[in-house]
Design a protein around this nucleic acid. Sequence first.
RNA 1: GCGGGCGUGGCGGAAUGGUAGACGCAGCGGAUUCAAAAUCCGCCGUCCGGAAGGAUAUGUCGGUUCGAGUCCGACCGCCCGUACCA
Length: 860
Amino acid sequence: MSRYSAAEIETKWQEAWDKAGLFQAKLDRSKPKYYVLEMFPYPSGRIHMGHVRNYTMGDVIARYKLSTGHNVLHPMGWDAFGMPAENAAMAIGGHPKDWTYSNIADMRAQMKPLGLSIDWSREFATCDPEYYGQQQALFIDMLDAGLVARKNAVVNWDPVDMTVLANEQVIDGKGWRSGAEVERRELTQWFFKISDMADELLSALDTLDNWPAKVRLMQENWIGKSRGLQMAFQPVQDFDPIEVYTTRPDTLMGAAFVGISPDHPLAKTLAETRPEVEEFRALCRKGGTTEEALETAEKLGFDTGLTVRHPLNPDWHLPVWIANFILMDYGTGAIFGCPAHDQRDLDFVRKYDLPVISTFESLSDPQPVEATAYVPPKEEKVKWINHFAGLDVATGQEAIDATIDFAEAQGWGKGVTKFRLRDWGLSRQRYWGCPIPVVHCADCGVVPEKKENLPVKLPDDVTFDVPGNPLDRHPTWRDVPCPVCAKPARRETDTMDTFVDSSWYFARFTAPRAETPTVMEDADYWMNVDQYIGGIEHAILHLLYSRFFARAMHITGHLPAKCAEPFDALFTQGMVTHEIYQTRDDKGRPVYHLPEDVVDGKLKDGTPVEVIPSAKMSKSKKNVVDPVNIIRDFGADTARWFVLSDSPPERDVEWTASGAEAAAKFLARVWRMANDLGEQRDSGIAASLDEVMASHAFGQNAADDELLRTTHKMIDEVTKGIESFGFNAAIARIYAFTNALNRSQASARIKWAATRVLAQLMSPMTPHLAEEVWAILGGEGLVAAAAWPKADPAMLVDDSVTLPIQINGKRRAEISVPADMAAAEVEKLILEVDAVQKALEGATPRKIIVVPGRIVNVVV
RNA sequence: GCGGGCGUGGCGGAAUGGUAGACGCAGCGGAUUCAAAAUCCGCCGUCCGGAAGGAUAUGUCGGUUCGAGUCCGACCGCCCGUACCA
């Protein structure tokens, strides 16, 4: 007999699928539709195991849904704009466009051998003018609908290269190329007004039942709805009152100072006349813009010398400080500091020697505040020692509510709801992105480009030899007539954030060649995405932006109302990890080695390597396994089987060479089993499970009966596994099924039918092998097109169950009883069991708990 | 710093609050073979015991419960995000 040859089989069946046009999605209202989408890749040029895992999961769902009678849409495209293409142009020359399209061609060629059930006829890249032109049309519609605004935003400024840097280009507060200390600088930018939808985006999270709870929670915290008190501190000297927003107004009697942001209007005014204020403001501007950098930076303060009156006691004067940790973006850009009940404020006053006044203390353990602020949960009752609304014992939340009521009644403050969510700044000072289709005219102001002039195409004649945005210095592209008055004007040279590209691609897939962003009929049929699959790293930004865009596209008439939440179900999969192999050079610096160069813990020259625990596969650590090599050595089915088998899909999976070999061995075993059976074809045993069930007389042959029962149970369990994303569990059941099939003494006819079911159950995961087995066993047509097997519920129930017997919670014995035995009967029966009698020593049990079908616990 | 998640044998992991370790890998023993590869069968958390059996065990500490890997609290470690990486 010949051996299992993945290469031969896989090419053959991929051609058969192509020929049958099985995966080309066509609008067909006679069938239920199913739209499965994996987050599309950035075209780096090489696929990696993370891609294989992501797309295999989607493929399992797509193929399974196809076999359950759905009209499946499973498209693929490329998230093709972004910085790496420009970095490559700078590093190795060439043009971002050539680099990107050549990467796309390479990656497509690497993906095709995986045998994914993708409708490649819908493929597009976001850098195609046909795509970004429609994105520009969307932008103009959103501008018209009032969903876009222009205002200032803070960016990372490299004072040497004179360019804006991305956060990842700021390393330890310094520019990655120049090494210069980065500053924060304000720039006028375009914004999507996502914060107008904050409340809607928050409340609609409740409808996303098929999203992971953790993602909904992360989005909820990100949007950050809070209710607090807004009030003014009146000036003692001659300046405007300071508006302050606080979520803890109950601690007002503990105020030690009023703090304002370095960007607060008052700070700016003071800086105009006082150089030391400007000096401090400059100090605060140092470093990058990330929240992490701002929050972990050393807390700095500057005493303005000004004072304000406490709202409850005009004779109580509080100092006004400028502090670097107060953000102009949130609230009013000013706070009052209560060091006793806020750790950050406490650290600040300890540094600058300001007073600490407690407003409440613990009921159980009152302690003066020393190094640690007392911050109990808002739901905990505390004793109030310094309050004005007559509180004694109350929770923080009760005190907050009482304070707001009190302030409103007295008229010195009002309850206000605020959101942490900021507007989405979409301007990027970069070339390789979608041009923002507006023109700046001296007379008409900022005007949108005419739609008939779209797409505003990126010019090809650009160079990357100087830092900065080549569009900004392009000789002709920039200069255009004003679309309104036709006078000379200047094109906007900023391009869009690449998150814009990925915020509506899922809608574009429903009509990828249309001359409008979407086509209502297609969008109405295919949307929403029934199952979206991608990495947890996109839990907040990409998904929140997409939710905003879906709403914006409805407002602008590009999506039906039902698409407000575009992803019905979301699944977040884990990473593929690998051990890291390291040696050291003569200076003791680490040198990393590819897994394929390490055999039995040694390099080829015999040098032993140090094994570092698994981490996400990355080029820099060289702990990468190239899917292309795995497919070459073992076949696509092995790669697919492995990435699904060893770990739950939401968790990381560790790639191991032995695991991949084991997967290959198992697939070869299934292939042999089918071939062994296939050789008995002449004896006329070819049969489907339905045919066998129709003619089988139970009670004649125990082995036959058992295998049939097992087959039905396996159909049930594997189906449930696939439907619940329990791919690893489904595969464990398939292993068990294969073992049972191998050992079974059932007749060849029954085994034949069972093996054909095995092929069907494996077909979403290992589609090529499944086709081969299906064909050997005389299955009709393609297994990919065959109807999914159905389990007979009558075959799933067992007559008797084994109940473990616990005594005081510890398992001491077990008993086999009829499955439907009443609890009272079971109770009687277990009292006869030796172990129970021994434990009771003649006494009556204190309690007997019978969980029908599960367990019995006797408490003595 | 803040928000979210994860932690179970030598390893990957299984387990609607109900027999912890399914299934797989590695390892050990055996069959087959002149030999090997491949394949097949068996054993396999740790400790005590010849066995039967017992003790112990799900990062650490505490709590809820007849019963906790699972629920609650604190801590430790790792991972993701932190608004210009995608």
